[in-house]
Design a protein around this nucleic acid. Structure first.
Lengths: 181, 181
DNA sequence: GAAGATTGAGTATTCAATCTTG
DNA sequence: CAAGATTGAATACTCAATCTTC
């Protein structure tokens, strides 16, 4: 011990690891902060959590506005029990109903109701759109948005978590004319 | 209603919003998946959660290996009560002790113990390093790592959440010679 | 027995209220 | 009263066990 302020040797972070580490810490923290911001605004303006909106959104874009519990869990990156409990909350609000397909009664589908559809259109989606714009897109350039899309997809693919079907028609648009990417 | 399969009109996602949305969803999901992977490996190999390691790491790099509860909470993007409970777990393991500075007895400092320092060096840091490398850095190019660093910093700055002091000396290295960024 | 979903127990995390010191 | 920290109540989430249907 050479310095009383340093009871043990300082920890060294090798340069190559430092770059990976700071990239990860910033990305992780940045996403966390944006998510907290969006979540808070959703709660305040739409009286609805982020996960609830995501579920409504996925259901609205699914064929027949319906998904099995397992597919929904997968789409929301949640566990099966997490999906059960989320849908429970949505049913309580009248935004979703459970249905068992007669041809396979092991399965349970979450089906969007008329009220759920209206809640998405008039309450949760506008609030989400505003929050996402102000808390996220307004802070970045189109190029950076494209980078995030690509990098996120690489990370998901590297963990065998990229499901083509999870990201539907609305995101496979031709790039806009003013997109420098 | 024109099609029985579509009880309500399909939802349209405007093209400009679609780009922001898919960037956000991929980034969010990607970070989530990487975090889950690192967390699982830490739990398995080091018997220690991600948050516990982050706390040890921050303390080890803080002057005197000590931080006030509020500064620690801030560094970990947690609430004050979250920090209290996290430190509680670390104290129970003998990795940290609480100390009240005599000059201001309102404040409580979390101080790394010798055992905590050894746990970081021998257990949690090696596991974290391996997990981060395999679950994150190996999947991306140096350029993409630099992009993430920059984009994350912009997001944090946009939310007034970027604290210069939070990111210490180890990450302000000159770029390596082979870094194309 | 396996697929699909739900439930119970345990843990983590937050907000609001409280306690202590300045 | 304000700053700093902790506690209680409530919520959300996961893993393992269970139940139902094929």
């Amino acid at each position: 011990v050479t310095d009383p302020d340093l009871p043990w040797p300082e920890i060294d972070v090798p340069a190559d690891h430092a770059r990976a580490l700071s990239a990860w810490l910033h990305a992780q923290h940045g996403v966390q902060v944006v998510q907290a911001s969006i979540s808070a605004r959703m709660e305040a303006e739409a009286g609805c959590g982020l996960a609830e909106h995501q579920a409504l959104f996925r259901l609205a874009h699914a064929p027949q506005h319906r998904m099995s519990m397992l597919r929904l869990a997968d789409a929301l990156a949640a566990s099966p029990s997490g999906a059960t409990r989320l849908v429970e909350r949505l049913v309580r609000r009248g935004w979703v109903v459970r249905e068992q397909p007669p041809e396979n009664r092991r399965q349970t589908d979450a089906v969007l109701t008329e009220d759920g559809y209206q809640a998405l259109l008039r309450r949760t989606r506008p609030a989400y759109h505003r929050a996402l714009t102000e808390s996220f897109s307004a802070l970045l350039t189109p190029r950076e948005l494209a980078d995030l899309h690509r990098i996120g997809r690489k990370l998901l693919a590297g963990h065998d978590a990229y499901d083509e079907h999870r990201y539907a028609a609305w995101e496979h648009r031709p790039p806009a004319a003013d997109d420098p990417a």
